[in-house]
């Protein structure tokens, strides 16, 4: 089962790592701070392997940069130790046990925008454009652009037209992989303002096997449009699994204890401008929601 190839996100870890730019903070100029745009990832022909540069090719080894990076990472180490002493997840134990809501991402400063990556079909040769910047009164994130579903003329790609906003995977000191633990909560809570277009929420969780690297969990996000904010609650049990853009026959519930990224994709084939304003992305514990997984968990798939 397929939605479309557009929503297929290429999770390539070497590239993601390149995006994080953990060792090259100087590359982020002030322009990047004001608006993140989708040309950050280069065009790659379908079927061609991603360029695997060794890290010394794209790292700035100047003295200033090295000292800055070292300072940042050592500070991070100290912060991690402090967080560890305070309690699980950097919160006091009581708070960790009792809290019913939490705000995962909010957009109040340009630094908050740096936690996100924008990509569009430009990397497969399409013509969509997407940008991310701070919205009204610098208190929200505005993800906007133009969707263009004209397929690139490379003789292979048959469809195009997607734009994606995706959070960067959390990193610890010296580039260690971290992940979020959402096991206290069962519902995703978003305060957004869209323009009537349907979106897709993608959640990626930490996996072990190579086979699962492309696994993503999706659900739909329908926006009302108009000048008012919209509170949307999506239970985590509703998310269904797909791999490389194809919904899988064998479904498994999302394990909320090792979440790496969340993303928003638009690919509704309606050419034209789009925009999505996000106030915050949070999690809550909906006591009334007891469903564990919304889809059948067949032992033997009757197909």
């Amino acid at each position: 089962m397929m939605f479309s190839h557009e929503i297929m996100q290429r999770f390539n870890f070497s590239l993601t790592y390149k995006q994080v730019k953990a060792f090259s903070p100087l590359l982020c100029s002030s322009f990047h701070l004001s608006a993140i745009y989708s040309q950050s990832r280069n065009y790659r022909r379908p079927g061609s392997s991603p360029e695997r540069l060794p890290f010394w090719k794209y790292t700035n080894f100047s003295l200033k940069n090295t000292t800055e990076t070292l300072k940042k990472n050592v500070n991070l180490v100290f912060k991690e130790i402090q967080d560890h002493l305070r309690g699980p997840g950097g919160k006091p134990l009581l708070e960790n046990l009792l809290e019913q809501t939490t705000v995962m991402w909010e957009f109040r400063s340009p630094e908050d925008l740096q936690k996100w990556t924008v990509s569009s079909d430009m990397e497969i040769g399409g013509k969509s454009q997407a940008f991310l910047k701070l919205g009204t009164n610098n208190q929200t994130a505005l993800f906007y652009g133009v969707l263009n579903s004209e397929a690139p003329r490379d003789g292979e790609t048959t469809s195009s037209g997607y734009c994606t906003l995706r959070s960067k995977p959390p990193k610890g000191a010296f580039g260690r992989k971290l992940n979020y633990d959402w096991s206290n909560f069962n519902t995703l809570h978003l305060r957004i303002r869209g323009d009537g277009r349907p979106w897709m929420v993608n959640i990626q969780s930490e996996t072990y096997f190579t086979l699962q690297w492309d696994d993503l969990y999706h659900y739909f996000l329908y926006t009302r449009g108009g000048p008012y904010w919209q509170d949307i609650k999506i239970p985590l049990s509703k998310f269904f699994m797909s791999s490389r853009g194809r919904v899988q026959d064998g479904q498994y519930a999302l394990w909320p204890d090792k979440i790496t990224t969340i993303g928003f994709t638009i690919a509704d084939r309606a050419d034209g401008p789009f925009q999505l304003e996000i106030d915050f992305i949070g999690l809550c514990n909906d006591k009334a929601h007891t469903e564990e997984f919304a889809y059948e968990l067949y032992k033997n798939i009757p197909l």
Partner: peptide
């Protein structure tokens, strides 16, 4: 009120003018 009964989100309200008509 206990923390376990607090179901509100700890975010600042976005300052926006009121909408009067559309």
């Amino acid at each position: 009120r206990d923390l376990g009964e607090d179901h509100t989100f700890d975010v600042d309200e976005v300052d926006e003018g009121p909408v009067y008509a559309m």
